[in-house]
Nucleic acid binder design. Structure first.
Lengths: 132, 132
DNA sequence: GTATTTGCAAATCGTTTGCGGCTTG
DNA sequence: CAAGCCGCAAACGATTTGCAAATAC
């Protein structure tokens, strides 16, 4: 019953653009990049596909300090739960796993009587390449 | 030379409203509460003071999933760095300290050659009172 | 008295949605 | 052909800003 997702040119473009780099980029950024690369995509289409990719867990989303949403491809590679070490200058991000932190968060939540405990953990800094 | 901040009625109102509860609330929420309490404050004034309080580190800010900014009073009590255990239903939040996590984040950043390492850590769940 | 603060309305800005036309299966 | 897409333009909702009147020091 679930709607099928079609293999359209735009879907491919957006996904390819996202897969291309290990960086967090906003919808507007990707839109600009695609346009600059000569691909006549619509802004709303970019938004729609990014959302879809996020829903399918193929893309991670983080909120920038000023409220914008930034996306990063994160296919099957990161099958499960993980965090990021993000360069606040270029957006480059690498996956981080830390079962000890997962356990810590879970424990803290339970100790205080919370249900459905979840958490967000991101590490920011300026990567070696940007330190120039 | 730094501009002095004046002791105005509105400034007091906003700060008092924030101090009143250990919950994260949006500017709009606080505005509504103040108005409901019979205080004729302007929405922009609320925004301006919340920003000011955040700049002075008297208020913590978190971004809700849909990009809104939520504030919580956090005066001298939490002098330094800390995190929160937030109820995703009522917004109630309690301070959490975890030096082990701080160290972990710092270490991960350095091991990868990052400078100015920083991090965000928040734990979400449904508090005992809301579990009903 | 004078610089700051207010509040309203208008302006921003990222993001969403309505909808006729185009594509895919 | 029918069910989904596309893209553009209009709609949205949170936050910001311009500006004249009100207020603090």
């Amino acid at each position: 019953m679930t709607a099928q997702r079609r293999a359209t040119t735009q879907r491919t473009l957006v996904q390819a653009a996202l897969t291309g780099q290990d960086r967090f980029r906003t919808a507007q950024d990707l839109f600009a990049e695609l346009r600059a690369a000569g691909h006549p995509v619509g802004l709303s289409t970019v938004y729609r596909h990014l959302q879809a990719l996020a829903d399918e867990h193929l893309a991670d989303v983080v909120r920038t300090g000023d409220g914008e949403a930034a996306y990063r491809y994160c296919g099957a590679a990161a099958g499960g739960h993980h965090h990021h070490l993000i360069c606040r200058r270029c957006g480059y991000a690498q996956l981080i796993r830390a079962s000890s932190v997962e356990r810590w968060a879970q424990r803290v939540g339970q100790e205080h009587g919370y249900r459905d405990v979840d958490h967000t953990v991101e590490i920011f800094g300026v990567c070696a390449r940007c330190t120039g």
